Amino acid sequence: MAKWTADDLPDMTGRTVLVTGAGGGLGLITARELARAGARVVLGVRNPDKAAEAIIGMAGTFEVRHLDVADLGSVRQFAETWTGDLDIVVNNAGVMDVPLTRTPQGFDVQTATNYFGPFVLTNLLLPRIGDRVVSVTSQLHRQGRIDLDDLAWRSRKYHRMKAYYDSKLAIVLFSLELQRRLTASGSSVRSVLAHPGIASTSLAAHSPSGFINRLGFLINTPERGALPILYAATQDVPGNAYVGPDGPGSIRGYPKVRKPSSAGLDETTARNLWRATAALTGVGTEVAR
């Protein structure tokens, strides 16, 4: 059976896609391929100059805008200044295994980047989104645990990797609850999940061991790692689909719809997490569409 690749992307002419964290790595590859297929791609990035340099020579229509998803002030400003329609949002921006640093809102930067920022951005842009929201997670969400009383690591002793696991479980639960709310409201917009398996990108650059990028042939190349994101963004998959590599353990391979952990499918936790996040951020009390 033929394996799906970026060559199988549909014609995206007339479509507008926002990709966060698109200044490099999987986000840049995702943006490049969607633009090559005809989409107008907006790169929401912390460093616009770096992103503008990265897309030089790439085919397609791009727009670079400043967006720091860890800073909810930046997220709000970005959403408030958005004009026109928006077909697809790819919540790709992420950090992994970073030291404890606080955002202007007092959240730890890892949870803010990987979860709070995407939550707020998606909710604020939702009235404009016409097709779907793709949230990028990780197989490591299977090791996560949600502490509803301390989502931002204020009372617990901060643990770099546990914060990553938890944030990636949180984004899985966010997708589940978003899809439930969209369905209940009669919306045709879909909330979809994607993960790259283990891909050799700069995501783990802050890790003290750097073990991920030393796994060699066992992991996906960045080009291959972007395929599940592209598949989730463009193919006719059901709401709350979980797209990842088709190989053993979903570590590497080509896109396939799989299943998240049982914790990621817990509807009660998903509802409670949404409420707790809305209380912390002041966003998400309603699905506008």
Rank of each mutant, 00 (worst) to 15 (best):
L215Y: 12
I129M: 03
S185P: 09
D147K: 06
N91V: 07
L169R: 02
A263L: 13
I171N: 09
V189R: 01
A93C: 08
R214D: 08
N240P: 07
S138A: 13
G239V: 11
G244Q: 12
T277Q: 10
G44F: 01
G21K: 09
V17A: 02
V109R: 12
F217I: 14
V243F: 11
G84Q: 05
I198S: 05
A241C: 14
E223Q: 03
N272A: 13
K3Q: 15
N240M: 01
V109L: 06
H195I: 06
W153N: 04
E53N: 10
A278Q: 10
R275W: 11
N213E: 12
D166V: 05
G73K: 08
T268D: 14
V41M: 02
M1G: 15
S135P: 03
G239Q: 03
M1L: 13
R142K: 15
G284N: 10
T16D: 13
Q139I: 15
Y158K: 07
A39T: 05
G38R: 04
S175M: 07
G264K: 01
L265S: 13
D85V: 12
A184L: 06
A278F: 09
R160H: 12
A37I: 01
A232E: 01
V19D: 01
F62D: 00
I88W: 00
F119C: 09
V109K: 04
A278R: 06
P222D: 07
D108W: 06
L218M: 14
S167D: 04
V17W: 02
V98C: 11
V134G: 00
S209H: 14
T269R: 11
G14A: 00
S202M: 02
T101C: 07
I146K: 01
L280E: 11
F78I: 11
R180E: 13
G264N: 01
A194F: 03
I198E: 05
G130T: 14
D11Q: 02
G106S: 00
L218F: 11
D131A: 14
